[in-house]
């Protein structure tokens, strides 16, 4: 019975056993590192592209259609394509970044379009320079769009990063351990790793939520 649907006790026992090995912590740490790398890269590139496509006609013409295509492409196609170009250990970070980029770009593009025109006119009339306009008007206006984009993107990056590890398993990774558990028909271990992924995802999302929405904004 444990082969198809293991009991909670069997899963807990498996998790306890796993937690006692250094590979467990190293796998979780490396997966986390790869996903965070991907998120950082995706955020940086998505933000830069949002500015480029908003402020330049050529940027909009060249990059906007490509990003829309990227947004519609299934994650598994990315994983297999990226496998052709980079080494295994880098694939999860690249895939996570490719998932984050269009979400951040989309949210920031909507944000840039909704910046208060009257405030921008004020900036012009009061002779604010470009940097000052960016700092005093654009960045504060974009904050909520950035925060919601980041929260959505992080969940997706986490799932796609682990999926990439399952399909192209690197040496130390949660996805590799899931793949090994599946091959060895170690269903309790499969469930135990899934629990780890869910717990890490929820925990990190909680931390991120506190960072992007400070206490006063949450009404506490």
């Amino acid at each position: 019975m444990d082969l198809l649907l293991p009991s909670p006790m069997a899963v807990a026992a498996s998790l306890w056993k796993l937690a006692g090995t250094p590979q467990f912590w190293l796998s979780a740490l490396f997966t986390l590192g790869r996903v965070c790398q991907g998120v950082l890269g995706g955020v940086a590139l998505g933000s830069a592209l949002a500015l480029l496509t908003h402020f330049t006609v050529w940027g909009e013409r060249i990059f906007a259609p490509a990003i829309r295509v990227m947004r519609a492409t299934p994650v598994v196609s990315f994983i297999l394509l990226v496998y052709l170009w980079v080494d295994r250990a880098t694939i999860p970070a690249v895939v996570a970044g490719l998932m984050v980029l269009p979400i951040l770009w989309g949210n920031l593009t909507v944000g840039l379009e909704s910046v208060d025109r009257q405030l921008l006119e004020l900036a012009r009339a009061y002779r604010f320079g470009r940097w000052k306009t960016l700092r005093l008007i654009y960045l504060p206006s974009l904050r909520t769009h950035f925060a919601s984009g980041l929260l959505n993107a992080f969940g997706l990056a986490w799932k796609s990063g682990v999926a990439a590890e399952v399909i192209c398993p690197p040496a130390l990774a949660i996805g590799s351990r899931i793949q090994q558990a599946k091959v060895a028909l170690e269903t309790p271990e499969l469930f135990a790793w899934t629990l780890v992924i869910v717990a890490l995802s929820l925990g990190l999302e909680g931390i991120l939520r506190r960072v992007v929405h400070p206490r006063e904004e949450r009404g506490q």
Binding site: Q118, L119, L122, A125, R127, K132, L136, I137
Partner: peptide, 26 residues
């Protein structure tokens, strides 16, 4: 025009800046 200062019909204060910061910003 570059040497004039206009007060718009709307206040156009930056909602995220304090009163002191609004002055300091200009």
């Amino acid at each position: 025009p570059e040497e004039s200062a206009i007060l718009f019909q709307e206040n156009r204060l930056l909602p995220w800046r304090s009163a002191g910061q609004q002055i300091r910003d200009v």
